[in-house]
Amino acid sequence: MRTAHRTSLAARIGLPVAVAALLVFTLFPVYWMISTALDPNALTRGSDVLPSGFTFEHFEFVFDKGNFGKYLLNSAIVGLGTIVAAALLALFAAVAVARFRFRFRTSVLVMILIVQMVPLEALVIPLFIQMRDYGLLNSLLGLSIVYIALSLPFAIWTLRGFVVAVPKEVEEAAYLDGCSWARMFWSVLLPLVAPGLVATSIFAFITAWNEFIFAYVFMQNSEKYTAAVGIFQFAGENSTAWGPVMAASTLVTLPVLVFFIIIQRRMASGLAAGAIKG
């Protein structure tokens, strides 16, 4: 009895301790980033856990001197364009590979997996040459096209699983009720695969928002830089302005968190709508 009591007591104590340790491990980098961004002496902070004060001067600096508002706008344009185009193309491609039978269907799926496994660094030079030949270098449109191409393999493969999970009998029942394919797709299939569409949209947005290599290589004009590249300007060869770097990093992180919170609510509503429609 005493052994069982000790075991249960240790379990009750150990679980909260483990959860607290996990939260500290996960949230401490976020705390360090925000506190350093608000620390007036961020450059000389060292390893002090608590900041020396509280100021918004680093945020004012990145907007006034660093032109960071323009970079955030460029990232928003590229990110939203990537979400819309990648979600639409991936959805139609997923329906095609999941519902239709055609030659080389298996080969298409294998190619999608192979493309997803190619390292991004191996694609920089080929895509650079291709964008140069098309006259799309130093263009937000060209960068958006690249991000759409990078997001499609994962999006197609993920959405294919959602489409396959929808019983064909549901679609057939819609046809018997007189629905056209377009009406069935909009009123029946789309609500059922909405959670997968939301998940792929999150992936596409994060890919476009945080990507650095292609944005840095393709953009020759600083006015076309995205936010991820804009942070790089505060890092010097011999020293780094940690206050502006952390302030810019905070500004880059917040839209992703807000976007995820908004989309998470849509994901729950999509699940409920799919259950009702089914």
Results as ranks from 00 to 15, higher is better:
residue 64 D to K: 14
residue 77 I to E: 02
residue 173 A to Y: 06
residue 106 T to R: 15
residue 80 L to E: 00
residue 187 S to A: 14
residue 3 T to R: 12
residue 195 P to I: 05
residue 73 L to K: 08
residue 273 A to F: 02
residue 139 S to G: 06
residue 79 G to F: 01
residue 12 R to S: 09
residue 144 S to N: 07
residue 223 E to C: 13
residue 27 L to N: 02
residue 26 T to Q: 12
residue 259 F to S: 02
residue 87 A to N: 11
residue 2 R to E: 10
residue 44 T to M: 14
residue 50 L to Y: 09
residue 224 K to P: 11
residue 278 G to P: 06
residue 220 Q to T: 15
residue 87 A to R: 04
residue 139 S to N: 10
residue 172 E to T: 13
residue 198 V to P: 03
residue 178 G to A: 12
residue 86 A to T: 07
residue 62 V to W: 02
residue 80 L to Y: 02
residue 106 T to H: 14
residue 238 N to I: 15
residue 115 V to C: 12
residue 203 F to I: 08
residue 86 A to I: 05
residue 273 A to Q: 10
residue 202 I to V: 10
residue 167 P to T: 06
residue 260 F to N: 10
residue 41 N to A: 12
residue 270 G to Q: 01
residue 75 S to Q: 01
residue 67 N to A: 09
residue 66 G to L: 07
residue 260 F to T: 14
residue 266 R to D: 03
residue 241 A to G: 09
residue 122 A to N: 06
residue 82 T to M: 00
residue 237 E to W: 13
residue 37 A to M: 03
residue 237 E to M: 15
residue 196 G to T: 04
residue 203 F to V: 08
residue 147 Y to E: 11
residue 34 I to C: 08
residue 23 L to E: 00
residue 35 S to L: 10
residue 101 R to W: 02
residue 59 F to Y: 14
residue 34 I to T: 10
residue 99 R to L: 03
residue 89 L to E: 02
residue 140 L to R: 05
residue 193 V to P: 00
residue 235 A to D: 11
residue 16 P to G: 03
residue 171 E to W: 05
residue 162 F to R: 08
residue 190 L to E: 01
residue 148 I to A: 00
residue 99 R to T: 03
residue 148 I to F: 02
residue 278 G to M: 00
residue 24 V to T: 09
residue 43 L to A: 14
residue 154 F to Y: 13
residue 230 G to W: 03
residue 90 A to R: 01
residue 213 I to K: 14
residue 63 F to K: 12
residue 82 T to S: 01
residue 6 R to P: 01
residue 61 F to A: 14
residue 242 W to P: 08
residue 247 A to W: 05
residue 16 P to E: 02
residue 156 I to H: 00
residue 21 A to S: 06
residue 261 I to K: 02
residue 137 L to N: 11
residue 86 A to P: 01
residue 31 Y to I: 08
residue 31 Y to S: 05
residue 212 F to A: 00
residue 277 K to V: 15
residue 113 L to W: 14
residue 174 A to H: 07
residue 223 E to A: 15
residue 252 V to N: 10
residue 123 L to M: 10
residue 217 V to C: 09
residue 45 R to F: 12
residue 93 A to P: 05
residue 209 W to H: 06
residue 265 R to P: 00
residue 230 G to V: 06
residue 76 A to Y: 03
residue 239 S to R: 15
residue 122 A to L: 09
residue 278 G to R: 07
residue 219 M to R: 12
residue 59 F to C: 07
residue 48 D to T: 15
residue 24 V to H: 10
residue 170 V to A: 03
residue 149 A to V: 09
residue 47 S to T: 14
residue 136 L to S: 07
residue 74 N to T: 03
residue 193 V to N: 01
residue 94 A to N: 01
residue 120 L to S: 12
residue 49 V to Y: 11
residue 192 L to E: 03
residue 7 T to A: 13
residue 176 L to Q: 14
residue 36 T to K: 01
residue 109 L to P: 06
residue 139 S to E: 05
residue 233 Q to E: 15
residue 190 L to C: 03
residue 185 F to E: 00
residue 232 F to I: 11
residue 88 L to C: 07
residue 101 R to A: 04
residue 275 A to G: 14
residue 40 P to C: 04
residue 146 V to H: 06
residue 242 W to M: 11
residue 110 V to S: 15
residue 210 N to D: 12
residue 120 L to H: 12
residue 110 V to R: 15
residue 147 Y to N: 11
residue 253 T to V: 11
residue 137 L to Q: 11
residue 249 S to F: 04
residue 211 E to T: 10
residue 232 F to C: 09
residue 58 H to S: 09
residue 46 G to V: 02
residue 250 T to H: 07
